[in-house]
């Protein structure tokens, strides 16, 4: 009997707690939610892909890093690299256009060293050059 009484009380507390504190029920746009969630991982992957081709003496990332999805499954990121973590020495911009699903790099540039063609990569992604 005491257990049933306490359980009933517990049920009331749980229902009140969940119903009162559950965030409002409006569902965000699923695609938008997913893109937002994918941003972090693809950003880190982009950094890795840049790191793979990092010429000496560039060793560390310095911010800011920005970008996002620019076409169907094609992502663009840009940032800068420096000789040390403080970014006080030489720093160069980098850009990458790649497909996270397959790991295919359509364009990669660190400073003046380019791999691929940015125009072609952006056209593949369906981005008009003048807009960028």
């Amino acid at each position: 009997m005491p257990f049933i009484t306490f359980s009933a009380l517990l049920l009331v507390i749980v229902v009140t707690y969940v119903v009162a504190l559950m965030p409002p029920g409006q569902k965000p746009n699923e695609q938008q939610w997913l893109l937002q969630r994918q941003m972090g991982r693809n950003c880190i992957e982009a950094q890795r892909l840049i790191e793979d081709s990092l010429p000496a003496p560039f060793t560390h990332w310095i911010g800011p890093l920005q970008g996002g999805m620019i076409g169907r499954d094609i992502w663009y990121f840009e940032g800068s690299v420096g000789m040390n973590s403080f970014g006080t020495a030489t720093s160069e911009p980098w850009k990458i256009v790649y497909v996270p699903e397959t790991g295919q790099i359509l364009y990669r540039a660190i400073g003046s060293q380019e791999q691929g063609n940015l125009n072609a990569a952006l056209q593949t992604a369906g981005v008009e050059l003048k807009k960028r």
């Binding site: 257990f3 359980s7 517990l10 749980v14 707690y17 969940v18």
Partner: peptide, 15 residues
């Protein structure tokens, strides 16, 4: 679902 999960877990633990 959350209400069921919480109620099941807490009751089972209390028992």
């Amino acid at each position: 679902s959350l209400i069921c999960v919480y109620f099941f877990s807490l009751t089972a633990l209390a028992f």
